[in-house]
Structures are given as structure tokens and as C-alpha cells.
Design a protein around this nucleic acid. Structure first.
Lengths: 226, 226
DNA sequence: CTGTATAGATCTACACTGTAGAGTATGGCG
DNA sequence: CGCCATACTCTACAGTGTAGATCTATACAG
């Protein structure tokens, strides 16, 4: 039917836009550029994507759709949660320029709800009291999004190559930088750091599981193994 | 003398731009708009701010400068850390439209270094081993920035006053939402939630302080009193 | 006073943006 | 054949960032 065609055409346009953003950056993502990539006139896009703002929202939808499969993984709650978190970060590396849109454009699509729901169920399965679940979901998703965006935008690794030198230049204004010069000299392993932060958050989660003796035992064992 | 004038003029322009962004949004922040607010022609801005991109970087600098005093507060390490975190969030509420620039535009200005340095010293004073300090600093700053941006952009509170209804609409697709319907029905207290997350992170930090007294002493080396 | 150097703002122009509105080709159906 | 919806194009306009040339006003040398 026509409806079906409209929907698939919209998808074609959005995937073209995402590919363009991936290849050449968000700043060259003009209606005209997307249109010529689709092989069409700029105004032909409007019936399908509304306007440019809506097109960007559409990109967010695409990203979420790509992330959604991670919500379907099986296993213990912590495995599921980790899978979603790592998928969220991997998505950022796959679409570095479009990814930050996730932070600036809140999505309420069914896909977004399903993702949040997967996190909710993981937390519930962990034994977190219902009252804490939404908050801890926001804590985890904020971490994943914020960390991934930080990596992508270079917030964590200012143009480098010697933060060291920068710290020295700051001199007595940055005493801790000097004290940490040894640590700061070696480049961080972002994969490991993301995992460590995730572990820390896991710890936070298990700490919020009520003090039922068996649950507590499980939590202690988890933290001991590190 | 002339140098001084250039610097102060630049400040005037940037504060005008920030005020304009605060009042009317980032999207109306054109060179022309800033120029007319300063009472001048668009091209007159260029000698002072370079170009539009640099102007946005300048806004980031302004925000950091506004945040910097928080780095100077006294007290125990956790009081200092909390002060900076809360100041970071307060800044977001004061400049909701410009704030997200902090996430997208990495800053390496002296002010930025000083802020990070304050966080470093807080963590060192807490007894965190040097090897973990940069990572935990990134964890905390990611939390503060990510949380504040989430609040501002509405990522946490999708426009719909009834997430509840939304979850019901999703129906069996979002079982956890239904299970949490009672909790999700009441509006969150963002102040409290931010504080709770911060407490969780404090816990994470203290968990990384070695329990062995001698090791701890070695780690603290020299930053005992503050 | 005249002449000139200099700093700062301006004017004009260009290539580009998003998008409103009207026009046009194409296909199927009676 | 006419009719009509669908899908697209064309033209146009106001607004953007900014390069390049021009103007103006002040400061100082003679």
C-alpha cells in the first residue's frame, strides 16, 4: 500500500542521512546534501521527514533501533545490563558524529521505551527496590551516554599529546596535576576504564539491594571477586 | 593598554552572547544577533572572537569561569567535591541552553585545568590511589555533566506528563514499566536524585581507598591536611 | 595647522542554509 | 479519453557565516 511505501522511503532517507553524517560530519548534513545523496530534490524530503529538526529526531530513532537488539540478550541481570551498556558505547564508536544527538534530543519512541524497560527489568531482577529502579536506570544510562560522548568529543583526551606539559605550564596553579604527572603521562585504556566504571556502578546497584541475608551474601561475594 | 582593551571588549561580547543565549535560545545566537546586541556590525566581532565556532568556545570559557569559584571552597575532601558537583549542576540551571556546550566542546583553558585539579586534589585527599584518580575524576564529572544535561534537555522527563499512560500504551512490550507504574506515577525530586547519585559515587570513591593503613599512608603522601 | 599612520568599525558581496508555495510529470482507474 | 492522487521539481525568500575592501576617527610628527 501507499502507507507502507511512505514508511520505507522515510527509512531510506534516514539511513542515507545517517551514512552521510558518519562519513562527512554533522555540519554538512544539510537538506540539500541528504537530498542529492538520495538522488532527489531537497523539497522532496519534506513529506517524509517533516523538516530538518524532525530529520535529526529520525536519526535518533535509527540509532535507538540499532541499539535495541542488545535489550534482547539473555542471561543474569548483570550480564544483560552489561550487554546494553557496552552496546551503547559501541554504538557511539560506530556513529561518532550522530551519537551526541541522543543526549540532546529526548526520544519517546517505542524503541526507547523498550530499551529503558530492559534496564528496568534487569534492575528489578537484581533485587533493587522499585522506588530506586528509575533513579538507578537514569544513573546507568547517564554514565553510558556521558562517557561515550566524552570519548567521542574528546573531552577526556584534550588534544593531547602531552597533558603532562600542559600541567607543567599551569605550574603551581595545578599542584595535583604535578603530583599525578606519572599517571597522567601514560595514555588511558578507554575500554578498561569504561568497564571499571561500569563495575563501580554494578557495585552501587548491589548496594541498593535490601539486606535480606541471602541477597547480601551474593552482593559480598560479587564485590570480593572484584 | 590596547591589549587590555581588546581583552575586555572580548569579554563584553561574550557576556552579551551568553545573555542572548540565556534569553532567547542557542538557535537565535547568530553573529548578527550578537552584534546588534553589542550595538555594532557583525563583522566588528571577528577581531575579538575569531569566528562563530570560537565564539561558542568562548561561551564555554565563560561558563567555566563562573564555575571556578566552587573549586576554591574549603573543607574536607567530600565537602569540596560535593560543592563542585552542586555548583556544576547549578550552573546548568542558570544557563540551560549554553550548558550543553560543555559536553560537546572540550576545553583546555587554564580555568578548566584548575577545576580538574581541584577534583584531583579532593580525590587524593580522600586517599584514592594515584592510578585511580583520573578515572574517578572522569566518572564524577561525567555524572555531573550528564545528569545536568539530562535534566536540561528533558531526557529524564519526556514531555508527556503521563509516562504512565505511555507505558500502558506500550502494553506488554514494556512489562517493567507496568510493574513500576506506581513509582513512575509520581514526579521525581531531581534535587534529591542528584544528591543520591552523588552519594553513590562518594561510596564508590571510598571503596577505592585502600584499607591497609600503610598503603593508604603511602597513597596520601603529603596531602594529609587541607 | 597639515599630513599621515593606525585601530576600529562598516559596507558590500557571495555561497550557503531551511523551507514556503506553486507547478509538473506519471501512473492507475473509471 | 478524462480524472485524480502521488511523487517530485522549480522558483523564491529570508537568514546564515564570513572574505575583502572601504570608511572614519583619533594620535602623533612636522
Amino acid at each position: 500500500m501507499a502507507e507502507q511505501g511512505v514508511e520505507t522511503r522515510r527509512r531510506e532517507i534516514l539511513t542515507a542521512a545517517l551514512a552521510l553524517a558518519d562519513e562527512r560530519g554533522l555540519d554538512v548534513l544539510s537538506m540539500r546534501a541528504v537530498a542529492t545523496r538520495v538522488g532527489v530534490t531537497p523539497m522532496a524530503l519534506y513529506p517524509y521527514v517533516g523538516n530538518k529538526d524532525a530529520l535529526l529526531d529520525g536519526l535518533v530513532d535509527l540509532l535507538l533501533a540499532e541499539l535495541l537488539p542488545a535489550a534482547g540478550t539473555a542471561g543474569a541481570w548483570h550480564e544483560r545490563l552489561r550487554a546494553i551498556a557496552h552496546a551503547g558505547r559501541a554504538l557511539a564508536h560506530r556513529h561518532p558524529t550522530a551519537y551526541p544527538l541522543l543526549l540532546s534530543r529526548p526520544a519517546v519512541t517505542p524503541d526507547a521505551v523498550r530499551l529503558v524497560d530492559a534496564l528496568y527489568t534487569a534492575l528489578l531482577d537484581a533485587g533493587v527496590p522499585a522506588a530506586q529502579v528509575p533513579r538507578l536506570e537514569r544513573l546507568v544510562s547517564t554514565y553510558v551516554l556521558g562517557y561515550a560522548v566524552g570519548e567521542i568529543t574528546g573531552r577526556f583526551a584534550p588534544v593531547d599529546p602531552r597533558r603532562h606539559a600542559r600541567a607543567e605550564a599551569a605550574g603551581s596553579q595545578a599542584p595535583a596535576h604535578q603530583e599525578l604527572s606519572g599517571v597522567l603521562a601514560q595514555p588511558p585504556d578507554w575500554d578498561a576504564e569504561f568497564g571499571a566504571g561500569l563495575d563501580d556502578l554494578m557495585h552501587v546497584i548491589t548496594n541498593h539491594v535490601p539486606t535480606d541475608p541471602t541477597a547480601r551474601d551474593l552482593a559480598k561475594r560479587g564485590s570480593a571477586s572484584r
